[in-house]
Amino acid sequence: MNRTIQTRVNGRKSIEENVEPRMLLVHFLRDRLRLTGTHVGCDSTNCGACTVLFDGKAVKSCTVLAVRAHGHEVTTVEGLAQNGKLHPLQAGFQHEHGLQCGYCTPGFIMAACDLLSRNPAPTEQEIRLGLEGNLCRCTGYHNIIKAVQWAAANLAEGKSDHV
């Protein structure tokens, strides 16, 4: 039986009726809320292109049912920039050329968000391990690591106060 789902997505209240119980969170975000920044790359929880924050923790939204989000808070890449100001991770990816085709980028940014919230000053190895659940086919990861380092340094300098 279809459900009504009430969530907070990117700080905004959302009420969606008639959601199939089998609907995946990623399709709920993309097709129902039209938040298309979250992508699907593999259908098997390997590539991480669909990574979002679920109550502040990174999850792969292709293996979470939308009904699970009822009463919970979801943050997608669209919710990161505040008052027209990019999140340091977004700025870092641009500054360090941490993306090429950009398809995996939102997933990397959200996974890195979670990483930096747990470990604000990660070593290179900790960054690599922290992003192991995300696949990028363009960059070879080299500049993604630099982007996260850039963001960590800028967050530490207090240039932005939110992760």
Binding site: R30, L35, T36, G37, T38, H39, V40, T76, V77, E78, L80, A81, L86, Q90, A91, F93, Q94, L99, G102, Y103, T105, P106, I109
Partner: peptide
């Protein structure tokens, strides 16, 4: 557009 989730891929 890519870092803000505002790109348009075909599934979008």
């Amino acid at each position: 557009r890519f870092i803000q989730g505002a790109a348009t891929y075909v599934d979008d």
